[in-house]
Amino acid sequence: MSNIAGKAYAMNVVTPAKWYWVWVNKLFFWFVQLPGGAAYLKGLLTLSLIHYARWAIVSPKEFPHLDESQPKEKLKYSYMFFFSNFNGSWDQYVDSFHAAIPQGLDLFWFKNVKYPKSVPLQPFHAYITYNQIWTSHYYSAYPLATSNDIKSARHLTRELRAFSESSARADPLEFHEAYQRLLRDVQQDISIMERTPIVSLSAQAVEQRLDQADAERADQ
């Protein structure tokens, strides 16, 4: 059980909010999805360590009741589910949100129960830790790739395809010039992906034990 897979960390935070306040949060989420609202997400979108972040508000009657064997629950609150995958450590992520977009966070979590505000940091850390649900299974198909790497790879692929089509019948001089132009266009997108630095010694220890167990099973 680990929140970490490859270069990514999976965070799930579930926070209660009084049902009669959540329309404010919903209004805010609706607003930022309007064409002009994206400006309010600029900070979030500039935090390049994020793979994605999603908020969902679920009211008491929206919780699924699968069949009769599931005991009925009387829920007092609406709940906000926050899911995010990101690169780097828990601290780096939470601290980046807190420092870069504190007002935005305070709107997202507006009136959530016991939300302490994003500044100062220590109460905010405590709030997220208290409400975080640990990830029981997490798989990464591309453990060497960060969100930035994927964006770069996509850009590089696009440019390279266009280049190979457009330069297929170019004469040597044209080809040379087009190639130099390509280099300049993709200079931010070329590097090599390797293993992640070890951001957590305990996660590293868990991984080593699991690898060891796998190796032993393979031997049998």
């Binding site: 360590l49 780097g88 930035n148 790497d149 590097s191 992906m193 390797e194 293993r195 630095p197 951001v199």
Partner: peptide, 14 residues
């Protein structure tokens, strides 16, 4: 760790 021995914050992969 993140800025000397790694490069993701600068979009420089590893």
């Amino acid at each position: 760790q993140q800025w000397i021995n790694y490069g993701n914050d600068f979009k420089l992969a590893n």
